[in-house]
Deep mutational scan, measured.
Amino acid sequence: MQRVNMIMAESPGLITICLLGYLLSAECTVFLDHENANKILNRPKRYNSGKLEEFVQGNLERECMEEKCSFEEAREVFENTERTTEFWKQYVDGDQCESNPCLNGGSCKDDINSYECWCPFGFEGKNCELDVTCNIKNGRCEQFCKNSADNKVVCSCTEGYRLAENQKSCEPAVPFPCGRVSVSQTSKLTRAETVFPDVDYVNSTEAETILDNITQSTQSFNDFTRVVGGEDAKPGQFPWQVVLNGKVDAFCGGSIVNEKWIVTAAHCVETGVKITVVAGEHNIEETEHTEQKRNVIRIIPHHNYNAAINKYNHDIALLELDEPLVLNSYVTPICIADKEYTNIFLKFGSGYVSGWGRVFHKGRSALVLQYLRVPLVDRATCLRSTKFTIYNNMFCAGFHEGGRDSCQGDSGGPHVTEVEGTSFLTGIISWGEECAMKGKYGIYTKVSRYVNWIKEKTKLT
């Protein structure tokens, strides 16, 4: 034993070699072989497995989906700052455009905790909710729209109204504003409101030439003092309507412009014939205590009207009353817009006519005020429907199939267009061939041609 100890002390290297040989010859039971080890760690190889990531292109799944990435790591994937920024906006807080917040056709661009709407022409605001041009839906104005110097929408209202708090709607500024039905039992019968379409306001006024200088022999019209197929109006439903009495009662109609003036057809009036105007009328054979009678003290036909040349060209006249009318729910003026808007309103496509005229061709006159909704007829169809001249200051309205029309005794009465609950004068009943005849239409004086003249002559002093 002493000898062994001496050998170990003198030859430590020998001992180490012996131990190493023993270990190498022993069977290893701690580690699995290569094949079995792979069965336990069965993990798919990654895209760049075996390579240094710093030297390969980034992978979106590896960089940002398996674990949260930084902007720089995302930049490695896209290799483009702009594309990385677009991805980053949604990656950080989701897609803010998912709810489609942009209105009126706006395009949404996502941002971090926010979004941006790219608005089409005519709109602005956070969600493109603000109209900035009158060309689109009248700028959301209830009545009139004008573009300011910086191309912003400025709404306005006709006389007797003021802008509401929203700067879009119009509200009454006087007790009985024009064009409004205020009798409670008839307010439910107000005709369907007309909503502004998209309009090209630059070209809204037709490029028409008034044929002022045409000389033409007097034409022989049949029954051209021209509501057939209409309905009984309720008291106060058309408070701007008046009836004219002269040699015979209810020979023509008219509309209240203001307390002192009536507008009617020029062919209705004769110099030297006494005319009485009755406002607030409903049943011409009954006294309903809503009527107001006034005498006409002055007749002003349009300066281009000449019955000797043509009885229905420039067929418009103004009547001055001896005493002002007292405005109330049964006696209310009709609204008159400017030339541009009167023309736009007419193009809405349908209007209402009213009167006490004959209820059928050569038949009896109506006792109760009649009204009828009539569609506008395109000019080409209008011209083809008659052998008589249709001037540019006239328009056609009615039904091709016949059966409904204005008729004798309705002449001078109103053709009105309702705009968001307020009625505007767009025409004056003038003439036609018979009444409600198939293929024939009622012919009306186009008020847009005469609004400046009306307003100039009827100013209240």
Rank of each mutant, 00 (worst) to 15 (best):
E53F: 04
T417S: 11
E124N: 11
K455M: 10
C335S: 00
L103M: 09
H34A: 11
G442D: 04
C108Q: 02
F345H: 02
E208Q: 09
Y201S: 08
G105P: 03
T422D: 00
N151W: 04
P301H: 06
H314F: 10
C108E: 00
E27C: 04
V202R: 11
G421S: 06
C119H: 02
L244S: 00
A9S: 08
R43I: 08
V374W: 15
S114M: 03
F348C: 15
L41M: 12
E124D: 14
C128N: 03
F424N: 01
Q185S: 10
S350W: 14
N100L: 09
N222H: 03
L383S: 08
K459P: 05
V4Q: 05
D212R: 11
K137G: 15
G230C: 12
T264M: 02
S448E: 14
S114N: 13
A37T: 15
E10Q: 07
E285D: 10
V199A: 04
E433R: 06
N295C: 03
T133R: 05
E165C: 05
V377P: 02
D378H: 09
V181I: 08
D249F: 05
G13E: 02
H303Q: 12
W88G: 15
S423F: 13
I297G: 03
V154T: 08
H282Y: 08
S70R: 14
G122K: 07
V263A: 03
D223I: 12
S107T: 13
N283Q: 10
T461Q: 13
C178M: 00
N258V: 00
K51S: 11
A436H: 12
E281G: 13
V273H: 14
D33S: 08
N138I: 06
N36M: 07
W356D: 02
V447E: 00
A307V: 10
C102W: 01
F31N: 15
C268R: 00
T417N: 11
P301I: 05
F144I: 03
P172D: 04
A9V: 05
T426G: 01
T16Q: 06
K446S: 14
E82P: 12
K152A: 09
Y450E: 00
T461Y: 14
N343W: 02
F71S: 15
V243W: 06
S107C: 06
Y161D: 01
Y391Q: 14
K188C: 13
S448I: 00
T209R: 05
Y450C: 01
C128S: 03
P120S: 08
R62K: 09
D212H: 09
N100M: 07
F238A: 08
N258K: 02
A397T: 06
K39D: 15
T158M: 08
K387G: 11
C141G: 00
L103F: 03
E231C: 12
S148K: 07
G349F: 10
V242G: 01
G355S: 06
T133P: 15
N304S: 12
N5P: 09
C28I: 00
H303K: 07
G412N: 06
G439T: 14
A337I: 02
V257G: 01
C145N: 00
V248M: 11
K440D: 13
G432N: 06
S448A: 14
W88H: 15
I316S: 01
G442N: 11
S25L: 15
K311G: 09
F388V: 15
D410V: 14
S148E: 09
A233N: 10
A397F: 02
R294T: 00
I334A: 04
V447G: 02
Y444L: 15
I297S: 05
N151I: 05
K362G: 12
V199Q: 13
F221Y: 06
G229A: 10
M394N: 11
S49P: 10
T84P: 15
Q370I: 02
E171F: 09
W453E: 00
N135D: 13
T422K: 08
P333F: 00
A37F: 15
T29P: 00
V243H: 04
N313I: 08
R384K: 14
F399D: 12
W88L: 12
I17E: 00
V416N: 03
R364F: 10
L163T: 05
G13T: 12
